[in-house]
Amino acid sequence: MNHSLEVRNLHVSIDGQAILKGFNLTVPKGEVHALMGPNGTGKSTLAKVMAGHEDYTVESGEVLLNGVNILGQEPDEISHAGLFLAFQYPMEIPGVSIANFIRAAKQARLPEGEEINAIEYYKDLYAKMDALKMDRKFTARSLNEGFSGGEKKRCEILQMAMLDPKYCVMDETDSGLDIDALRIVSEGVNHMRSENRAFLVITHYQRLLDYIVPDVVHVMFDGRIVHSGDKELAKELESKGYDWVKEAFATASA
């Protein structure tokens, strides 16, 4: 079996407008890859398409988890296949508590007729909340409703930790975080790094990568990856700015 998240020659459009234009990427298990690039270059589109969002039209290409194409599957099937998307803007779900929400997500992974063990579930939930420095009282609060930016992102990491996915796609997890929240969130992610898990960290800023140190950094521009390198590439981008990317690769992609 191929232990990787692999995107092959992906072309995606929305309302007739091409957004991803031959996107290729392979993230093997055990590695953390960062995907950087200017706004409007298709990073969030990539994340949503991989998770099965229905608004996008896949013109061609594949997204493979362990060698199996997941495009065309329902979002819950993709989730069960092992892909987790930490949202840039997590939705607020009024009246649905964090505890019940995560419980429903875990329950959905059990075979028909098998019930989740409530005692173990709460033990696990509380331990992970403690690690993320989340108040245990949050379990009873409506999911993301009235949460600050930092609380929402911590809640995303909590869900990720509870669902134990093999492929984690994190979309702009650093946006809206102060430095303390950034450190806590990064610790949560680093704690989950393992040989059996791959991360794709989508970010606009290099700052996050000081905390979550990537194995590979990709630069995305105009719907595809235009340049890849090691962690130093992120620093280079930071100092030169995205204008450098535009100048260097605009001609190439034209």
Binding site: D76, I93, P94, G95, F101, A105
Partner: peptide, 24 residues
């Protein structure tokens, strides 16, 4: 979409939303 991304089937997600709607 958010709820289904967590692996919750559509039918269950809708129920959760309705209970959420009624919770008040």
């Amino acid at each position: 979409f958010y709820m289904m991304q967590r692996g919750i089937p559509q039918r269950v997600a809708m129920q959760l939303m309705v209970f959420g709607f009624f919770e008040e």
